[in-house]
């Protein structure tokens, strides 16, 4: 291997690693706030990539229909909750999500998206993927918020199974790739740097900074952190677990939607590609001990690099190497753990 190839692989690794890092952060966020391991996160990524590709191919963006179905289910559940028990209250707020979904779906079908340029396509894609988060939380997880960790995990996996087949229905079996954000190439001495790399790294860093500011400066961001730190305390401040759940799922959908847009020009994405991508985010999250954001992000970037270099050395064993790498990490965590621990 010469320096040029190493640099090329390094770029690949960092790009993928940055995206795994974003996903690892979303996974940690959702887990710490709701205790859900959000396996269907990968479907948000693949749905975003395929929606953007469909727009560029001039096909109708059908994701809106899934949103409409979910938001109607959510509305029905809200109405049932509202009329049940002593608390009879119908709120106009219940209509906000169906209204948003209606508008976005109508726009996605009516606008000539193919000709609107990449920025608007990306915006529209994220606007379509974003509501998937809160809707999934409302329909699937809110009714079982107090359930055991196993039940939450099973529902997350079942949601993944169902969403993959919805993906097949909406997007078909063919893979798709979008146009790169820009074709330009920079020379750094001898080395070739693709501008796509800079886009991915730049946007990932920007997103991480924005998230940092959200959690450090914004009252709602602090409320989410508070829920993760002490659920009882947060509840006693009037931060409802439902709101925290929806916001964290929404953020995860936003981040993974953006990741999907970023990854779409680099990798061919199929309706079922999301799972393996999100699992790499999970590996990052595990490296961070399901607790530390910076360690998880660094671990995810390292994972991207390992993946890129193993593609070069032993391409058919790439996935074997990546997932087997988890064993030493688990061993290290296992050795670091003292005594027996009771789960809460």
């Amino acid at each position: 291997m010469n320096a040029q190839i190493a640099l090329l692989l390094g770029q690949d690794g960092v790009i993928n690693g940055a995206i795994y890092a974003l996903l690892a952060l979303s996974i940690l966020l959702v887990f710490s706030v709701t205790r859900v391991l959000l396996i269907p996160l990968g479907e948000f990524v693949s749905f975003a990539a395929l929606t953007m590709a469909a727009m560029q191919a001039g096909k109708p963006a059908l994701l809106g229909f899934l949103l409409v179905a979910l938001s109607l289910a959510g509305l029905v559940m809200d109405l049932i909750d509202a009329t049940r028990g002593g608390a009879r209250r119908l709120r106009i707020g219940m209509l906000a999500m169906p209204a948003y979904v209606g508008v976005v779906t109508a726009l996605s079908l009516a606008l000539p998206l193919k000709d609107l340029g990449m920025a608007l396509q990306a915006l529209m894609t994220i606007a379509l993927v974003l509501p998937l988060g809160p809707l999934l939380y409302r329909v699937l997880f809110q009714p079982i918020a107090g359930a055991s960790a196993l039940v939450l995990l099973i529902v997350a996996i079942a949601a993944h199974v169902a969403l993959v087949s919805v993906g097949l229905l909406i997007f078909g079996p063919e893979g798709a790739r979008t146009e790169p954000f820009s074709d330009s190439v920079f020379m750094l001495g001898e080395a070739v740097i693709q501008s796509q790399t800079l886009w991915v790294i730049g946007l990932s860093l920007l997103l991480i900074v924005l998230l940092y500011l959200f959690f450090e400066r914004n009252l709602y961001g602090k409320a989410l952190r508070a829920t993760a730190v002490d659920r009882l305390g947060a509840q006693l401040m009037g931060i409802s677990p439902e709101l925290a759940g929806k916001v964290s799922f929404g953020l995860a959908a936003f981040i993974s939607g953006l990741s999907g847009v970023l990854i779409a020009p680099i990798t061919t994405i199929y309706f079922d590609s999301g799972f393996v991508i999100s699992l790499k985010g999970f590996v990052g999250a595990i490296i961070g001990g399901l607790a530390s954001y910076p360690v998880a992000a660094l671990g995810a970037v390292a994972l991207g690099l390992v993946e890129a270099f193993s593609t070069f050395y032993a391409s058919s064993y790439k996935e074997v190497i990546v997932f087997t790498l988890l064993l030493p990490v688990l061993l290290w965590r296992s050795l670091a753990q003292k005594g027996v621990e009771d789960e809460k």
């Binding site: 391991l37 995990l153 699992l279 064993y317 997932f323 087997t324 988890l326 296992s334 753990q337 789960e343």
Partner: peptide, 23 residues
């Protein structure tokens, strides 16, 4: 490697080796 760890590591670990062995 996994049984000493609490909670979520075992299911996630099993998912990882499930994929790994399949490939």
């Amino acid at each position: 490697v996994t049984l000493k760890l609490s909670g979520h590591y075992l299911p996630l670990g099993t998912i990882a080796w499930g994929i790994s062995l399949y490939y």
